[in-house]
Design a protein around this nucleic acid. Structure first.
Lengths: 344, 344
DNA sequence: TTCAAAATTTAAAACGTTTTGAATTTTTAT
DNA sequence: ATAAAAATTCAAAACGTTTTAAATTTTGAA
């Protein structure tokens, strides 16, 4: 395993010059630089990252903690994130150290990982409103980037979509199709995204002077989508349109619509949020789902790069990204069916 | 952040003595040692792992590469392993670095991770017969431990169960209940465990002079268990007992038995291998499943400790563990039903 | 040719820890 | 009190790299 010392010995240069040549210091003569690079290639030199870390204080490792549920599964987005992030970080020669959170205290796994002092920073996902991890890491000056937001004015690097707008846009789109009874089947309110979507939904419905009686917040299972929709469709003031947290929820809703003898979109319209995960694809529905779309995978490169930029000194206020999801209208939404519902 | 230098300055001792006192060198006077330890505690001293790594060549990090399927899932055992391993490694202040394998070449992710020269060793799981990763890492002298075996005489540290015996024991147990037509619904033969179970099954059946015509090797889905069992139960020489690769397969088999109008165990017996994963639990079947049981979680501490022992110099021939699974007889197996089948 | 400025390279210190072998201190025996 | 042996501690080098500031070399002008 070649070191800087080997190169400097072969070329009769100091170790300092070899290091400077390889690291792009501008005052190094171009001819010297080329000689150093050629020799480094030939000798198969690779920097000792441990030694670099000792000098620079940087390890090239970022931590991520995955929350494991009691049944030994994790959020279905996990592998999407894992795959995307490891690829994005690898292009920056950065490793992902993974730890597991099964504790009651969400902060504890971070404490444990930080004790060993080899992590440059963290990638946080699945925030809860006013996430305690955020406060903990900020108090200690530990760099991190959050996927999403946990508060209205984040003071840390963050990248996510505008979940207020996701449901507000869906409501407005359905309203413009004539719908006046619109239901929301949301995720669990301990997730920051679900809290935002609820707020966005309520604000939009209130602005449009519509009733917000048809709102359900629950864990994201197809069966929950089914039972909530089945229940709401049996009411006298049954909704004519559903806003679903995910395509998984939508699968259950679509089944409930069918089981109640309705047609989609002639009788009931459905719009869902689509993270573009491989399993429940919006275009596999019949008819294809109208969605607010924001591929989860698209977050990975920006998240990795924002964390590294922050580690390289970019201040947090320059690393605030909140995107709008893309509205894609397909066959699951249509004009409100005034005749049919009035006849019931 | 206190260093050895801080402690040595406060106590008027050399840095070398402080290091030796904290690291248990026997020639350090007990009074000196206690003073050093008390001061270290008070100052909140924690060793700089990077500096330790530079001197000792050890990073305290082991790598594990998870194979991701095209649909963005992984083997259902993954989280069980992840949880158990990170806990086991944490007690040894060792971190798990995770990388993702989506490549056609199973060796390539190891190359990539090794390039960065921060991994002390690897934990390998899900071996295929004559696993190329094993050859690759052994050629390079990279330490690793394998969960299971990929060959008859492993020359590397390994911990797993005797999969030959798993199916052989099941066959013998069913034979002793009077069964003469025994089917195997196995995993995919590109997995080393499935190859061994097939061998064990065939050997046992051949030794007992029984037909090996009822063998299926397929991906481990409940639906595969169902369709294979449904098919075999429609044959003139239908099996009176099934040996299932997993409890997931058994769930499908049990449904097929019911759909063919048979009772378990009066008409058809079922025995499955049980990794003791949370989702498909053997005792949740009605009647509860007879199993060969080997909780996956029980492998984690030994795997972690074996790798660390190997890194500390224990030779591979002292780190060979092959356990027998435990046979647990419950209500899914019973004597062969000679009357009913003869009447068909 | 000489001098000054610019370009280039170098020596040394730093990073925090470990460990070899030498130096120092303490203990024991005479 | 002295010498030898044992116990304890220390100085220095090592690990591989980075970077400050000084030293050296090269270039251009007079």
């Amino acid at each position: 395993m070649a070191t800087l010392k080997d190169i400097s010995a072969e070329l009769g240069l100091s170790v300092a010059t070899v290091s400077r040549a390889l690291n792009g210091f501008p005052e190094v003569n171009i001819k010297t630089r080329n000689k150093v690079k050629e020799t480094a290639d030939r000798l198969g030199y690779r920097p000792n990252r441990i030694a670099q870390r000792l000098v620079t204080g940087r390890s090239g490792m970022v931590g991520m903690i995955v929350k494991i549920k009691p049944d030994m599964s994790a959020d279905q987005t996990f592998f999407e994130m894992l795959t995307g992030l490891t690829a994005a970080l690898a292009t920056h020669e950065t490793d992902l150290v993974l730890a597991v959170d099964q504790e009651a205290d969400p902060v504890l796994p971070y404490t444990k990982l930080l004790e060993r002092d080899v992590i440059d920073g963290f990638i946080l996902n699945a925030p809860v409103p006013n996430d305690p991890r955020v406060n903990y890491l900020q108090e200690r000056g530990i760099p991190f980037v959050l996927h999403g937001q946990d508060r209205r004015e984040p003071t840390y690097p963050n990248y996510g979509i505008d979940n207020l707008a996701v449901s507000a846009d869906a409501v407005r789109m359905l309203f413009n199709l004539g719908h006046r009874r619109i239901a929301l089947i949301n995720g669990e309110l301990h997730s920051a995204y679900a809290a935002d979507r609820l707020d966005g939904f309520r604000d939009a419905m209130t602005t449009l002077d519509l009733s917000t009686v048809n709102i359900r917040n629950d864990a994201v299972f197809e069966s929950h989508g089914y039972t909530h929709a089945l229940d709401m469709l049996a009411q006298p003031s049954a909704p004519t349109a559903f806003v679903c947290a995910t395509t998984v929820i939508a699968a259950g809703v679509v089944q409930a619509i069918k089981d109640r003898g309705f047609c989609m979109p002639q009788d009931v319209s459905v719009i869902a949020h689509d993270d573009a995960l491989p399993l429940t694809r919006a275009i596999n529905f019949d008819p294809a789902l109208t969605v607010t779309r924001a591929p989860l995978r698209d977050a990975c490169v920006p998240l990795a790069e924002m964390l590294l930029a922050h580690l390289n000194g970019t201040p947090a206020d320059k690393l605030q990204v909140k995107l709008n999801a893309e509205m894609i209208v397909r066959g699951s939404t249509g004009p409100t069916p005034e005749r049919k519902v009035d006849g019931t």
